[in-house]
Computed example of a mutant assay.
Amino acid sequence: MGHKPWFWQSKQTGQTANSEENVPEHIAIIMDGNGRWAKKRALPRIAGHNEGMKTVRKITRSANRMGVKVLTLYAFSTENWKRPKVEVDFLMKLPEEFLSTFLPELIEENVRVEMIGDIEKLPVHTKRAVQNAMDRTAGNDGLILNFALNYGSRSEIVNAVQAIMNDIQSGVLEKSDVTDETISQYLMTSHLPEPDLLIRTSGEHRLSNFMLWQLAYTEFFFTDVLWPDFSEEDLLEAVAVFQKRSRRFGGLS
């Protein structure tokens, strides 16, 4: 499916984004601020998470229209199990609700659903919903909508190191074979390009155990906008900022 050229200029900052320039191939987003969005409105936290799912749908459409190849969304971290059980139970029901309503559109738009994280530790109903979406969109070759679900970057790296050690012990690898590229090949994202742009909403300025290896040369964009309020214009502004940066990957300017 082709993407029509687009041009956008922010009325507030004057930043411009142009589809004929450098659109990020892979955008990763730490979706933060659902709870604060709800608190500001005297609503329960789960109302913020529910509203946040609507934003996921909106931003997925926008990214697909822009020609982004991969959109990775940090949906649930390995640390999020520490939250109150009522909130965790609600969050585990969201993928089923979201994917059941959005899946026909994803199929029509040629979007492929993928996941990074430990799927085996998810509740049966959550795992079933995610696996069904991945199976039904497996043949699509458009935007990859990649959910980081029950995901933690440190455990991902530990698992990769352990797998490499096992392969060295079994003779599949030599110690001298282990390079940056080798480690990348043992990560959950081995088949994906590393993120070009990371967006974090709600005014926080940390990575929260998200894609620590993969973000080594990623451009960061932080915004005070809470995730449920994050709009297509906010996404375009982030892309506009990205397009004006010079990526040197450690080289000279």
Rank of each mutant, 00 (worst) to 15 (best):
V241P: 00
K11S: 15
T137I: 04
I116W: 02
V225R: 05
A216F: 08
S190N: 09
Y74N: 03
S190R: 13
I199E: 05
P193E: 04
M188D: 05
R57V: 10
R206D: 01
W8Q: 09
K40L: 15
A238E: 02
F220P: 03
Q162T: 10
S153W: 01
W81K: 01
R83A: 05
I30S: 08
S170N: 15
N132R: 15
P84F: 08
E79Y: 05
L106H: 04
W81N: 11
I199W: 00
R61T: 11
A42I: 10
L252Y: 09
S253R: 11
L149C: 12
E21N: 12
T223C: 03
E108W: 00
V86F: 11
L226W: 01
L215Y: 03
R200V: 09
E232N: 08
N64T: 13
V23Y: 07
K175W: 01
V88T: 01
L145P: 05
K121Y: 08
L197R: 00
Q169G: 12
V113F: 00
G203E: 05
N80M: 05
L143Y: 04
D118C: 10
F102D: 07
H49P: 07
W6A: 13
Y74W: 08
Y74S: 07
E120N: 15
D118K: 14
V130M: 10
I107A: 05
V68L: 10
P5I: 04
V86P: 02
S62T: 14
W213N: 01
V124M: 03
E156Y: 08
T179G: 06
S190K: 13
L149Q: 02
A42L: 14
L43P: 04
V130D: 05
T182M: 13
R206Q: 07
R206P: 07
G142C: 09
G35L: 00
L212V: 10
H26P: 09
